[in-house]
């Protein structure tokens, strides 16, 4: 009898504070598994953001700092520059990274900071009650867009991976999703690659993960996975947008 799947040492025993069926839990586990498998858990510093993942410092079994809203890449820059041997990653949602923290993420990539950014995109402000975010899909109903997002008034959703791929300092940008077991396995490979790049001094990496917010979307957990696959992935195409290592 062989144990082929069990809870990773990269997570603490604290139960997640996320809603039932929220894929934040899956993404936490993937990050923690990568840290454990790369044997970097004891020298990793996590930077928690503001949003649903504000408590993530309780869940990752490594050192962590909680940053001000949107400022996680700036805090990560400071930690990495003072302690260059540490592996530093930020864990941010779309409200944090694509709205209030757009300046910080763009500038951190421009400086080519050797950090990893885990960007969880669920197209909504989940923690504050499901308001429209910069990433909310056209026509998507939220508490602040009850008739659906009107692109003539509120503009088009921002595609962060495409934007970040234009920045010369960015080394690796990929978008993945957590809609089924296959895509979750692919997401893990992407996250692992990003950490390997940082470990080898490769520079700035960002993995955007299409995630669900079943409570905010008003769907069941299972229907939310379908929404990620059919609606979100149609507007936010999956794939590698930049790979400096492969280009050389």
């Amino acid at each position: 009898m062989t144990v082929i799947f069990q809870k990773t040492k990269g997570l603490t025993d604290t139960p997640f504070t996320y809603c039932p069926g929220c894929t934040h839990g899956i993404i936490h586990r993937l990050v923690a598994e990568c840290l454990e498998e790369l044997d970097i858990l004891d020298r990793t510093v996590a930077i928690a953001s503001v949003g649903c993942s504000v408590m993530s410092y309780e869940f990752f079994n490594c050192d962590a700092i909680q940053a001000a809203h949107g400022r996680a890449p700036a805090v990560a820059t400071g930690v990495k520059r003072v302690l260059p041997n540490k592996i530093v990653f930020t864990y941010q949602g779309d409200g944090d990274l694509a709205s209030i923290g757009t300046g910080e993420i763009v500038q951190a990539a421009h400086r080519g900071e050797n950090i990893t950014v885990i960007f969880v995109n669920n197209a909504i402000y989940g923690m504050t009650g499901g308001q429209m975010a910069p990433t909310t899909l056209p026509g998507q109903i939220t508490t602040t867009s009850p008739y659906g997002r009107d692109v003539s008034k509120q503009g088009e959703p921002i595609r962060m991976s495409e934007l970040m791929a234009q920045i010369p300092g960015a080394a690796y940008i990929e978008r993945v999703m957590t809609a089924d077991p296959v895509s979750v396995r692919k997401a893990k490979r992407a996250i692992k690659k990003a950490f390997e790049i940082q470990k080898n001094g490769g520079g700035f990496s960002m993995i955007e993960i299409l995630s669900s917010c079943n409570i905010g979307w008003g769907l069941s957990p299972v229907d939310s996975l379908k929404y990620i696959k059919e609606d979100m992935a149609a507007y936010f195409p999956l794939g590698v947008f930049k790979d400096k290592g492969a280009a050389q």
Binding site: F5, G25, I26, D180
Partner: peptide, 16 residues
């Protein structure tokens, strides 16, 4: 291991 991979709360352990 599909169930364990999709579990958001790391509830499941799988043995072969």
């Amino acid at each position: 291991t599909n169930c364990a991979i999709m579990c958001p709360d790391t509830v499941i352990t799988v043995e072969r």
